[in-house]
Nucleic acid binder design. Structure first.
Length: 434
RNA sequence: GUGGAAGUAGCUCAAUGGUAGAGCACUAGGUUGUGGUCCUAGUGGUUGCGGGUUCGAGCCCCGUCUUCCACCCCA
């Protein structure tokens, strides 16, 4: 292969390898997610990465950025319009309907962990393939579930050692949202010449989106704009207040934030984001978010079904763990290194390794290397407590050497007693440690 | 999609327009089969790619790709 051809193989834009050295972070995060799932009785669900494009048009919303310009969509060989999922609430809702989960005790609680795809310009904390962990409670409009879902996310971050704040808002429902949109639209129309270009368009198309516009002028105007919470219908207001009361009970630190509007059309009532302030810039960045989506299941052809859920970005979370230098558990450590010298020894070590593993001894090796020096160097790098050394001499004598890596003291033991001797020493060490 | 910065060895980085280097890492040695420190040597590059200017380009110019950063959006 030519140099040129070699160079041609590189990461697709916006993709990342997750290397062995990164895995301890991923395992840690995954484990905490799994723990929370089982503690709060959310069952794991894995839906396919591919769904019909129509699913996202219908759920996420045809006029959202995600659907308009960020989806990986293609036509497959059977002439079907297919999309790599850009998020998972739609897929989970689809599964809920299609698998008849309406017949299970409600609400149905589910969690997921997997990769998602959006064709966006990569930058810090933003990739084209990214991973999320998410929790969904489908089949109840109880505000206590809003609080529980929010709380699970807070617990997730707290267990990792991250101090996040939840920004919360209520978007109202199909009944009261139009009222508010009208009021807001009227307000904005009156100030139209002071708005940025984007917001001028938003006034008629989707005035809610103007609320979190980042333009300074627009921000100023938004400070005096009518707020959603003041235009909620009674049911939505009660629901919102109840949610906040439950959060108080759980001692969840939240921040009422009318700018949380969310970029997906299916959200109703509660909308929230988990934010953390950047160490250097002080800027707030979102690690996750979610909300209620009481209309989604029906929109996708199911019965009217209330639901609430949230998702957390794994890469952003890990980035934060690294930035704050937060300790995560080390990967598996080895207690023993098995060194061999010569053809015969290698053969015997091959099966000795298996026997050690059966005896639940963490043993490392590099049978493909010959020199003892090299093998001891490896043993040293792996930070093992003992190295077992087997050479010609030991084979003839029916023995094996146990080398204490700290002091360098070596003992000769009967080859057939190697495993109990090793276990005895490891046990003694542990005893000393405590 | 818009704007800004940067691309040299696996990693971190040097190199007035004049023969591409260091540290780390990796490999092999420093007499028989012994690590942590040390010493020696070696492998590894068409300087992201393609053009242009020049006697001569890693360096200057243009394009392109990728990464990073900001906007937008979101996770």
């Amino acid at each position: 292969m030519s140099k040129k051809e070699k160079k041609a193989f590189q990461l697709v834009k916006g993709m990342k390898d997750i290397l062995p050295e990164d895995q301890r972070y991923w395992e840690h995060v995954r484990r905490i997610g799994r723990e929370l799932g089982s503690q709060y009785n959310y069952g794991r669900i894995d839906t396919p990465i591919l769904e019909f494009t129509k699913l996202f048009d219908r759920s996420v919303g045809a006029y959202t950025d995600i659907v308009e310009k960020e989806m990986y969509s293609f036509r497959d060989r059977g002439d079907e319009d297919i999309t790599l999922r850009p998020e998972n609430t739609a897929g989970v809702a689809r599964a809920y309907i299609e698998k008849g989960m309406v017949n299970l005790p409600q609400p149905v609680k589910l969690y997921y962990f997997g990769p998602f795809f959006r064709y966006d310009k990569p930058q810090s904390g933003r990739q084209r393939q990214f991973w999320q962990i998410g929790f969904e409670a489908i089949g109840s409009d109880a505000a206590v579930l809003d609080a529980q879902v929010i709380n699970i996310g807070m617990k997730f971050f707290r267990r990792l050692g991250l101090a996040v704040v939840v920004q919360i808002n209520s978007l109202g429902c199909v009944d009261c949202r139009p009222n508010y949109q009208e009021v807001l639209s009227d307000y904005l129309k009156g100030k139209k010449n002071q708005l940025c270009e984007d917001c001028k368009r938003r006034v008629t198309k989707n005035p809610l989106r103007a609320i979190d516009c980042k333009e300074e002028e627009c921000q100023k105007l938004m400070a005096d704009a009518p707020q959603q919470v003041d235009y909620l219908c009674e049911a939505c207001r009660d629901h919102f207040i109840a949610t906040l009361e439950y959060l108080d009970e759980l001692e969840v630190v939240y921040n009422l934030n009318p700018k949380i509007v969310r970029g997906l059309d299916y959200y109703t009532r509660t909308a929230f984001e988990y934010t953390i302030s950047d160490q250097e810039s002080g800027r707030q960045s979102a690690l996750g978010g979610g909300g209620r989506y009481d209309g989604l299941v029906e929109e996708l052809g199911g019965r009217p079904t209330a639901a609430v859920g949230m998702a957390i970005g794994i890469e952003r979370t890990i980035k934060e763990l690294r930035a704050q230098d937060i300790k995560v558990p080390e990967k598996q450590e080895y207690d023993i290194f098995l060194a061999q010298l010569g053809k015969e020894a290698r053969k015997k070590c091959l099966s000795l390794q298996d026997k050690l593993l059966e005896a639940e001894v963490n043993v490392a090796e590099n049978f493909s290397r010959d020199g003892l020096k090299t093998q001891l160097e490896l043993a040293n790098k792996l930070n093992v407590k003992y190295t077992l050394i087997l050479g010609q001499k030991e084979i003839v004598d029916g023995t094996i050497l146990i080398r204490d890596m700290e002091g360098g003291i070596q003992e000769v033991v009967d080859f057939n007693k190697a495993i109990p001797e090793v276990k005895k020493r490891l046990k003694l060490r542990d005893g000393e440690g405590s």
